[in-house]
C-alpha cells in the first residue's frame, strides 16, 4: 500500500481511538441542528431547501475544523515521532497528504451524518437536490480549506492550543474579508475595487456562490489553490524547520 494511505489509516484510527472524533461529530451535529432549526428558522422559511443549514457551516467550521487539524503536526513534534515518520521511506509530501486526507475524512464523515436533513426536506417538499449537492460539495471544500490552514499552523508549533488559536484567527480573517457586514463597512473607507479584491480572497464569497447551486470552476479553483498553497507551505515549514 502507498505509504500515504498507511499514514492516513493510522491517523484515522488515532482519531477514532481517542474521543476527538466522537466529540467532534457530536458537537458538530448538535450545533448544526441547533443553528439550522432554532436560529436559522428551518421551518419558518417555508421553502424546501437546506439554506438554513449551509448558511451556518462557515461559522461552525471556524472552530471545529481547527480542533480536528490542530494535532496533525504539533502532536508529532511534541512526541518526537516526526523524526521517526520522516526517516521512514516516505516523501514529506506523502506524509502531509496522508495526514491531511485522514482529517478531511473525519470532516466528511460529519457532513455525511447530516443526511437526515436531506431526507427531511425531501419528505416535506420538493427541494432542488442539485443545489443541496452543491452545498455539500461547497462545505467539503470549505472544510478542506480550513483544514489545510490548520495543518499549516500545526506544523509551526509543538503546542496544539497555539496551533488551534492561530488557525482560528487565520480562518476568521479569511471568513470576515468577504462577510457582507464587514465588506459593507469597508466600502465606506476604502476603494470599492480594493474591497472587491479583498472579498474575492475570502472563503465566504466563494462558499456562498457554490451553495447557491452554481459550481463555478473559479470557486472550486479558489478552494483548491488555498489547499495546495497551505499544504505546500506545510512542506516548506517542515523542511526549513529541520534545515534550521
Amino acid at each position: 500500500m502507498n505509504p500515504a494511505l498507511t499514514i492516513a489509516r493510522r491517523e484515522l484510527a488515532g482519531y477514532f481511538q481517542s474521543p476527538v472524533a466522537y466529540v467532534f461529530l457530536v458537537i458538530y451535529l448538535l450545533l448544526s441542528g441547533f443553528f439550522t432549526f432554532m436560529v436559522g428558522g428551518f421551518f419558518e422559511r417555508g421553502t424546501s431547501s437546506l439554506e438554513a443549514f449551509f448558511i451556518w457551516q462557515p461559522w461552525l467550521y471556524l472552530f471545529l475544523v481547527p480542533a480536528v487539524g490542530m494535532r496533525l503536526w504539533s502532536e508529532e513534534r511534541r512526541m518526537g515521532t516526526l523524526e521517526l515518520l520522516l526517516t521512514m521511506p516516505v516523501t514529506p509530501l506523502q506524509a502531509i497528504l496522508g495526514k491531511y486526507l485522514a482529517a478531511w475524512l473525519v470532516i466528511a464523515a460529519a457532513l455525511a451524518l447530516t443526511f437526515p436533513l436531506v431526507l427531511t426536506v425531501n419528505y416535506l417538499g420538493t427541494p432542488d437536490n442539485g443545489v443541496i449537492l452543491a452545498g455539500y460539495i461547497g462545505s467539503l471544500l470549505l472544510g478542506g480549506a480550513y483544514l489545510s490552514i490548520a495543518c499549516l499552523t500545526s506544523a509551526t508549533t509543538r503546542n496544539q492550543v497555539v496551533s488551534f488559536i492561530v488557525s482560528v484567527v487565520v480562518c476568521l480573517f479569511l471568513l470576515l474579508a468577504g462577510w457582507p457586514p464587514v465588506t459593507d463597512l469597508l466600502v465606506q473607507w476604502a476603494d470599492p475595487a480594493f474591497v472587491q479584491l479583498v472579498s474575492s480572497l475570502s472563503v465566504m464569497t466563494h462558499f456562498q456562490s457554490i451553495t447557491k447551486g452554481v459550481l463555478d470552476s473559479r470557486d472550486v479553483l479558489y478552494f483548491a489553490s488555498v489547499i495546495v498553497f497551505c499544504l505546500f507551505t506545510t512542506g516548506v515549514i517542515l523542511r526549513t524547520e529541520r534545515a534550521n
Binding site: 493510522r10 512526541m79 515521532t81
Partner: peptide
C-alpha cells in the same frame, strides 16, 4: 528517547 505513537 525512543519516540512512538503513544495512542496506539
Amino acid at each position: 528517547n525512543a519516540p512512538s505513537y503513544s495512542d496506539m
